[in-house]
Simulated scan of single mutants.
Amino acid sequence: MIERFATVRGLRLAWLDGRGDGAPILALHGHFGRARCFAPLAAALAPRYRVIALEQRGHGHSDRAGDYGPDEYVADAAEFLRGLGAGPVIVLGHSMGGVVAFRLAARHPELVRALVVEEGGALNRPPDVPHPVLDVRDWPRRAATLDGLRRAIEARGIPDAGYFLESAVEHPDGWGLLFDRDDMVASQRALIGDWWADWLGSSCPALLIHGPESFVLPTAQARAMAGRRPGTVLRELPGCGHWAHDDDPAAFASAVREFLAAL
């Protein structure tokens, strides 16, 4: 995938282009994530599909912003697609990116042909989600080595820092993360809420992918989401958690491919 940049609503946003002439898929990562988490999926779906992964505001190589409200993420995605002259497209999102995806479909149905939502819940607040905010404000700003940064993050109670280290880069004064810690806490807090109206607010075909071991999306909620929204297929991937695309990349790609083939 090739990294490119676009000016979207005054922000310089990075995006990765899977290239090719296949049907476009806009891919939206979750909190703390990077566009490159979709590289394995892009390879698995090529050449029939062209994955276009947007690095959302405040993440990766994209600009920081003053507002991380969910509406801002949706407006960014809509403007980005219009700037590409793309639409309607398949929109795929993980976690926060999944919520952005289905809210985009509800607000801009002309831009969304179908949805693939991985672990993006319609209800993101206690007690349904006991801990909707991961407080990273005391995470290290710098470490002498990448392994030192990993160990420092895992010392904060993170079993495996691999996902977060996708945002790790080497600076002149050591290894650090691309995202701002305060920004990420603010963004997570802004996502706390009831998003059922948005989930039910579109009519395009949808695939909901759930990892039964997830600590973010309860299985009961995933099944309710599929049951209440017509045209929704639920795929539960055994042995997977919140990051199903990392836990079992082959099963994740297969679920997406089968859904797309049926469109």
Rank of each mutant, 00 (worst) to 15 (best):
F5C: 13
A6T: 10
T7I: 14
T7Y: 14
V8R: 01
R12N: 14
R12H: 11
W15I: 04
L16W: 15
G20R: 07
D21N: 15
L26R: 02
G33A: 12
R34S: 10
A35K: 06
A39I: 12
A43L: 10
L45K: 08
A46E: 10
R50I: 05
Q56R: 11
H61C: 00
Y68D: 00
P70C: 04
D71I: 08
D71G: 13
E72I: 02
A75V: 04
F80T: 08
F80Y: 01
L81G: 01
L81W: 03
L81N: 02
G83A: 09
L84V: 09
L84G: 04
A86T: 01
P88S: 06
G93C: 07
H94R: 06
G97L: 09
A101R: 03
P109D: 01
V112T: 12
A114D: 04
A114L: 13
V117K: 05
G121C: 15
L123S: 14
P126W: 15
P126A: 15
P127H: 12
D128V: 15
V129M: 05
H131S: 14
V133R: 05
V136T: 11
W139I: 01
R141E: 15
D147E: 15
G148P: 02
L149A: 01
R156A: 12
D160E: 08
A161F: 09
G162P: 06
Y163W: 09
Y163H: 08
L165R: 05
E166Q: 12
S167E: 03
A168L: 11
A168T: 07
G174W: 11
G176K: 10
D182R: 14
D182Q: 15
R189Q: 15
A197G: 09
C204S: 14
I209A: 02
H210N: 10
P212A: 04
S214H: 10
T219D: 13
T219I: 13
M225G: 06
A226H: 05
R228H: 11
R229C: 00
T232G: 03
L234I: 00
L234S: 02
R235T: 03
R235E: 07
E236F: 09
E236K: 02
G241P: 04
H245W: 04
D246V: 00
A250K: 06
A253W: 10
F259T: 00
F259W: 02
L260F: 02
L260H: 03
L260M: 00
